[in-house]
Write a protein that binds this DNA or RNA. Structure first.
Lengths: 223, 223
DNA sequence: CAGGCTTTGTAACATAATTCACAAACTCGG
DNA sequence: CCGAGTTTGTGAATTATGTTACAAAGCCTG
């Protein structure tokens, strides 16, 4: 599909810089790894093997090692990986070693729920710093400590506030329009909750969260 | 055992109960097809080719045909597919030709947002018919027209109300517990919003919706 | 109603992702 | 500091998924 994108330039001395195609699934698993490592770290455990890491996620240990191998050599033969070190390095690879700045477009039901998701978001290093809506009655004040502006000013605010990722929870029908605006403002990553396919230039990455599809496909497996 | 765990990781093809091996991705695309077909149907268009259907979703036309071929022969050479007929048949395959009955566990922020998602859900043939929470203050009345019961009565209600799918939006930490209860009550499909892996027997299907992972992986692709 | 045109369904091919398997690297107890 | 025991990192094999290509089927125009 339109998933083929360049990878980020290396920000650390790992061989990731040149590797042109890392499977999307690998990236998602990296994210899972950090979560497990976080837990282990909390329990005061200092080292972990690919086997243990895999078991915690239902993955083959070779897959864990191979995933990590995309980015360098982090392990010690005969010992495994140092939990904290590995966690730090993966976070650095993912770019979540600093706070990721999110904007929310569409302060409806789902949008507000996302605004109140602060606990989880905070813990994972994200922060919703601004929201937008087309309804003038919702604009002006704050919701859950987040200022809400009118979409007509979105471009300006997105730039000024150095937004990394836009979350779309607008009504179906205006999603593409809003997307175009965001991209004009320099946004390159979108998390789309609207059940509509977005047409975007190649340098823009869209992830879809589609509840209806999840439910429909679950329905298939009912028996 | 390993198979079971692997299944829970959520991203790989699992041997579905009866149908030998239809890729999970195929099922999700079927769901997308119905959406496109719905739109075409609305516009009064009566036939559609695999090319057109694919174009609408950014897919290769052969993939569309192959996906459909898993389930039979629906098309007419030289003509394409009859929109309404195809839609009906796919819905029948997915089991969404009747209302799918959902239960929501955890009436927090996200849970309430899902309860208010009625418009979209209704349109797609789902219905949240009951909700549960552990907080006695939330229990008893209705939220968005949906009765809320205490989790301690969950098993009974799930059975009595013939629930198909359980949506989990409970606080991290109790997800596994709630899952076990639901499975004891005969539930075989779970949509899990909690950022935690669920251990379930083989016959139970779990789909994960994990916002943090979506954001983290988007973060990777930034610049 | 014949023949050119279109589009299906699928077999063969191509690509991608995962798992296996093992040499090499390192640990650690004694 | 040696040797038995682990565990890594990675080619090779396997499995899964997607694409190409085309014969067969059916439409439709003249």
């Amino acid at each position: 599909m339109l998933d083929e994108l360049r990878n980020q330039a290396g920000e650390d001395p790992s061989p990731s810089a040149d590797n042109p195609k890392i499977p999307k699934a690998v990236i998602k698993r990296l994210s899972l790894y950090t979560r497990v490592l976080q837990k282990f770290s909390m329990s005061g455990i200092e080292k972990i093997s690919s086997k243990e890491l895999g078991d915690a996620l239902g993955l083959n240990s070779a897959q864990v090692r191979k995933d990590l191998a995309y980015f360098g050599q982090f392990g010690v033969p005969g010992l495994g990986y140092y939990v904290e070190e590995l966690r730090t390095r993966i976070k650095s690879i993912l770019g979540t070693d600093r706070t990721v700045r999110l904007a929310l477009v569409g302060v409806g039901n789902l949008g507000q729920a996302l605004l109140s998701y602060t606990t989880q978001f905070q813990r994972d290093g994200f922060r919703v710093v601004v929201a937008f809506d087309a309804d003038k009655r919702k604009v002006g004040g704050e919701r859950m400590g987040v200022p809400v502006f009118h979409v007509s000013d979105m471009g300006r605010h997105l730039k000024e506030m150095a937004i990394d990722i836009v979350m779309l929870t607008v009504p179906a029908g205006v999603a593409q329009q809003v997307t175009d605006l965001a991209i004009q403002a320099g946004i390159t990553a979108i998390l789309n909750f609207v059940p509509e396919r977005l047409l975007v230039p190649e340098h823009v990455k869209v992830h879809y969260v589609d509840l209806s599809i999840e439910i429909e496909s679950l329905s298939y497996y009912l028996k």
